[in-house]
């Protein structure tokens, strides 16, 4: 990853500010140290990959969410979009001999096409959410809330409320490991981290996202194509939800239309913990990665330590709020 460090690191690096800026990383490190003292098995390579794999699905969604929240928006629909893209994907990628096949006469095709369909469904749904926001100026919360319900509805309609399973091995292999130890979901996740970081920091699109979130009026006056930017941001977010559906199908081996309920909130939480500000204009891909990791470490660690699942939820909620409080204080001291 060292080659990508320049892209992933924060824009400036005044030595005084490092502690402030990387505060959240220290939180992560403290958590890792704490948990591994209590439970040394936490640091086994098997478990480390396990943690990363667990964070991959909502981590990928958090990458798109970072663009959305930087633009001062929110996307509540990504969980439902994952389900819709997932059932479409699964219906096109069943084995020839699957019982109760969705398309009984459909021959097996290269897995590339079902994946492309999932990505297209995701991008289309997301793009439509963005289009609504750009053209009608309704709040992103409302627009994406509508899409959340509509996409879930379509997923149920499409699948008739039933899970679609018996997927081709070339798809389920994406949930497995390369060379017997490297989880493919993690590889996909890392590739998307790099692509997202490049998009956010090195392209006009990324800078426009910051500008739209920083001051939408000033963005318009400065020649930023605000509508196009908004549509692209939500389309990218939807596209990543589609990709998350691919990873999901690969790992689970089937897709249920009720899948990924509530995943949007985990993605939002990861992004927020990573320091992306809901007031717009502030946020990094690196932060979304660390935020997703904190959530995954927390879940995995608490499970290893035998903490009750209900208490895990309570802890997670507290962590999210505390992270945001710390983050707001960080911004306040800069005034």
């Amino acid at each position: 990853m060292s080659a990508n460090k320049n892209i992933l690191k924060f824009e400036s690096a005044g030595s005084k500010e490092i502690l402030q800026k990387y505060g959240i990383v220290f939180v992560l490190i403290l958590m890792i140290i704490g948990i591994s003292i209590l439970e040394p098995a936490f640091l086994s390579s098997y478990n480390v990959f396990n943690v990363l794999t667990q964070s991959a699905i909502f981590g990928i969604m958090a990458l798109g969410m970072t663009f959305v929240i930087i633009s001062k928006g929110i996307d509540l629909s990504v969980g439902s979009v994952l389900a819709l893209a997932g059932v479409v994907l699964a219906s096109l990628a069943q084995t020839a001999d699957a019982t109760g096949k969705y398309f009984p006469n459909l021959a097996e095709m290269p897995v590339f096409f079902p994946i492309l369909a999932a990505l297209a469904v995701g991008a289309l749904m997301g793009g439509f959410t963005g289009l609504l926001i750009a053209k009608t100026h309704i709040p992103a919360f409302i627009s994406s809330l509508g899409m959340m319900t509509v996409a879930r509805g379509f997923a149920l309609i499409y699948s008739d409320g039933k899970p679609i399973s018996t997927l081709v091995p070339s798809l389920t292999r994406l949930g497995g490991k390369l060379f017997g130890f490297l989880p493919i979901p993690v590889i996909i996740y890392f590739i998307m981290i790099v692509i997202s970081a490049v998009l956010l920091n090195k392209t006009r699109f990324g800078k426009s996202a910051y500008a739209v979130g920083g001051n939408i009026k000033a963005a318009e006056v400065s020649g930023v194509n605000v509508n196009q930017t908004l549509i692209a941001i939500y389309a990218y977010c939807g596209l990543l939800a589609g990709l998350a559906a691919v990873v999901f199908a690969g790992r689970v081996g089937s897709v249920h239309p009720g899948a990924a309920t509530g995943y949007e909130l985990t993605a939002i939480a990861a992004t927020t913990i990573g320091g992306t500000s809901h007031s717009g204009g502030i946020g990094t891909i690196w932060g979304a990665f660390v935020g997703a990791l904190i959530l995954a470490v927390l879940r995995n660690g608490l499970t290893l330590l035998g903490v009750d699942a209900y208490w895990q939820q309570v802890t997670e909620g507290v962590i999210i709020v505390v992270a945001v409080i710390i983050d707001m204080r960080k911004n306040a001291t800069k005034d």
Binding site: E11, S12, K207, Y210, A211, G214, N215, K217, A218, A219, E220, V221, S277, S279, G281, I282, N331
Partner: peptide, 13 residues
């Protein structure tokens, strides 16, 4: 403030 600067963004951007 309203339609000129991006307050929280860098001078460079």
């Amino acid at each position: 403030r309203q339609s000129g600067i991006f307050p929280m963004l860098s001078v460079r951007l």
